[in-house]
Write a protein that binds this DNA or RNA. Sequence first.
DNA 1: CTCTGTGAAAATGTTCACAGCG
DNA 2: CGCTGTGAACATTTTCACAGAG
Lengths: 217, 217
Amino acid sequence: MDSTTGFRHIPEATVSRLPLYLRSLLEFTEQRVATVSSERLASVAGVNAAKVRKDLSYLGSYGTRGVGYDVEYLVRRIQEQLGLDQDWRVAIAGLGNLGRALVNYRGFGERRFSVEALFDADAAKVGTEINGVVIQGTEDIERTVRERDLSIGIIATPAGSAQDVAERLVEGGVTGILNFAPAVLTVPDHVRVRKVDLSIELQILAFYVSGTVTEDV
Amino acid sequence: MDSTTGFRHIPEATVSRLPLYLRSLLEFTEQRVATVSSERLASVAGVNAAKVRKDLSYLGSYGTRGVGYDVEYLVRRIQEQLGLDQDWRVAIAGLGNLGRALVNYRGFGERRFSVEALFDADAAKVGTEINGVVIQGTEDIERTVRERDLSIGIIATPAGSAQDVAERLVEGGVTGILNFAPAVLTVPDHVRVRKVDLSIELQILAFYVSGTVTEDV
DNA sequence: CTCTGTGAAAATGTTCACAGCG
DNA sequence: CGCTGTGAACATTTTCACAGAG
């Protein structure tokens, strides 16, 4: 209905699958596959075909009946929806093992995300460089985030510092936070937080594995 | 109804919140808080009170009306449900930056998870040690997983090797996999997979942040 | 009188099944 | 025909609201 940019309320569940479709479609691109059916895309993305069709229908009717979806065109549409047609400047706070791994993570740069600032509370780390970016103290977060116009912050600090860091990031103008610290963050409504908690994931897994010899589901 | 061990079908959504409640409750324990209301627990866990009560009701009726929940007792009940009253022996495959970070991750050892084997395809890494555990080649996965009776595998390899590694882990007897590789894994029905994809999380965040100046939700 | 436990309502998400476009 | 797009059925999850236990 609205065609061009991004309205049409896309359900959260759909949004969270779009990056998955995107990745699958990019694989098709590499293999020079020009067109895919919902069936084929679904099997690569690990979901079912009805879901793919329903999800894609929220972006508009871009498929061709009897044929499928044009891979290249659909890639562009999804990238557009996800806001991947622009660059994202991110800050990473907390440079322990995980933080360092994130700085070097290829998956970020490959997309349109670039790490533009690093912060750590440890004075011994401040001033050192990782990947050409100098680590600053956490007291510099607000100013640097504002000056460099960063819009996303990644928190990989210990739980105890996470809320403080989050507030500084928000104060600096960040509107999205990816939180790896095992802590619940309180932020203003206009800021979006997503959390990734490794130990929680393992515990969930433990639940299902201990329902031993499969309790199905 | 069944009281003791773990039946009563607990909804997936609830299961994924139990570790969160557990963490919150452990904080209360440290602060020597003996009893919490659903309201208080909810606020620490970052959810709402109705959800806490509904979730906990699936474990049985362990609260006291007019008072709340006994922290220590509830901790034990949840740990029991999650299978955290036993030790979990895990293998990690793929020792790039992320894999190394995982080996050193405190959050694992703190719970009942212990890293008992490490695998990497890179011959230069094989034979070296991290945290006292020797890295083995991926061809050793099946045997070692079986010999050491490991039940959970963590995959932090590049996407291209993930499926192969998964098959070896499963062949060795693992029944739960935590997958950090940006790839969809195909495994037998009795094996549970949970995936954590950093770049997908960032892309989801980008969607909501680019619905700039908040499209709400 | 407070706070749990829970039916019932509302919202969200998934699957089915098929009309109809290309 | 084959495959999309989508209403409608079904399933799961969340929220409401309140009876009643302590």
